[in-house]
């Protein structure tokens, strides 16, 4: 199985390649990709340098252009496809149907991967994207259980990539407008969820409050670790009880499932986090490389090393990891 790692910057890209990534995915420095953070992502010269570095070290580069262009942004998004093609990336990661059609028409020989934002959760949906746009690979949303992934994999007309580690989206990706309901930006429109520009921290008598466009997402008492106010991970009130009504701040970790994912024919495992530092990428990529190498040596001898779990837990939201929807009880 391939290890696909995030690269939000050139140092992160080189680190990922040096520590065992088979492929890295990048985005341009604008809202054409789903991780729009200030100071993050690539301009053309940096992208060219990164692609050259990856190729010289035997790794591939995928370019995410996976937000949804509206009429006033259409030219910017198609220009991003043109730029990626000109730079010589190995694949485009796209969600929007119009943009997939554009890429298929202009660059038929450049591989197209369906972004997780394209929300394909069944083999029939995959068949739609394959027959309509000739996609080669799809990234599956994090809403399917292991049995469901197996079922999709059995009949999938394309290669499958699944999320292995990192932040956990509780909602079907590409089908969540919660962020634009509270702020004016969503993953689909601007490549941003709970954008930093809308975040405000405030000390009050109750504790440390985190707010998103003035809406209280959480309030932390003494000794409680405060987390970024991603809106679905706050504590809210439902029928008088206050709790993480949507999702706890935890990270996805599927290392235990690697042999199963390999057996069902999954092509690649994906690490989330283009917003993360090179140090994070080094630790995560290195750990997953070891796990994949161990798996390649024989699935019967595969076991997750305590050291690997320790490393990954330390890099997780709230120090906690979950199998997420892969484990049916989570639902």
């Amino acid at each position: 199985m391939e290890l696909v790692c995030p690269a939000g910057s050139l140092p992160a890209l080189k680190t990922a390649v040096d520590h065992g990534a088979n492929a890295v995915y990048i985005g341009f420095r604008d809202s054409t990709n789903a991780r729009q953070f200030s100071g993050l992502n690539f301009n053309d010269p940096r992208a060219a340098e990164g692609i050259d570095y990856a190729h010289r070290h035997g790794a591939r580069v995928f370019c995410a252009i996976n937000t949804y262009p509206q009429p006033d942004g259409w030219r910017q998004w198609t220009a991003a496809v043109d730029r990626a093609a000109r730079l010589g990336v190995d694949a485009l990661i796209i969600a929007d149907m119009g943009l997939l059609a554009y890429a298929a028409d202009r660059y038929p020989d450049l591989s197209r991967h369906l972004s997780v934002q394209g929300s394909a959760t069944s083999y029939e949906a995959l068949r739609f994207y394959k027959e309509t746009f000739g996609i080669r690979r799809a990234v599956l949303p994090r809403v399917l259980s292991v049995d469901q992934v197996r079922h999709v994999a059995r009949a999938s007309p394309v290669e499958l990539e699944v999320f292995a580690f990192g932040s956990l989206c509780i909602m079907a990706e590409g089908r969540c407008y919660l962020s634009s309901y509270l702020t004016d930006e969503s993953p689909n429109t601007r490549g941003a969820c709970s954008p930093a520009k809308a975040v405000r921290w405030q000390e009050s008598a109750q504790g440390l409050e985190s707010r998103l466009n003035e809406v209280m997402i959480d309030c932390y008492g003494d000794g409680e670790a405060a987390g970024y106010p991603t809106l679905c991970k706050g504590r809210f009130e439902v029928e008088g009880s206050v709790y993480h009504a949507i999702e706890e701040p935890v990270s996805l970790n599927t290392m235990d499932l690697l042999p199963e994912l390999a057996a069902m024919g999954i092509t690649a495992v994906k690490i989330e986090g283009r917003q993360r530092s090179p140090a994070y990428i080094r630790a995560v990529a290195g750990t997953w490389r070891q796990a994949l190498d161990r798996l390649a040596a024989g699935a019967d001898r595969y076991a997750v090393e305590p050291g690997w779990s320790h490393t990954l837990s330390g890099l997780s939201e709230g120090g906690l990891t979950t199998l997420g929807a892969y484990h049916r009880n989570w639902k």
């Binding site: 949804y68 262009p69 509206q70 009429p71 259409w74 969600a95 929007d96 149907m97 119009g98 943009l99 059609a101 554009y102 394209g118 929300s119 394909a120 959760t121 069944s122 029939e124 949906a125 068949r127 739609f128 994207y129 027959e131 309509t132 590409g174 089908r175 689909n188 429109t189």
Partner: peptide, 30 residues
């Protein structure tokens, strides 16, 4: 898209609901 594919297989016309991501005219055209 699962529903769309099945309807395309049938060769019957269809409409889409608000949860289908149609953000531009290139999408509508295809």
């Amino acid at each position: 898209q699962s529903a769309m594919q099945l309807l395309i297989d049938q060769g019957v016309p269809f409409v889409t609901g608000p949860a289908v991501n149609i953000y531009n005219s290139a999408t509508l055209k295809i």
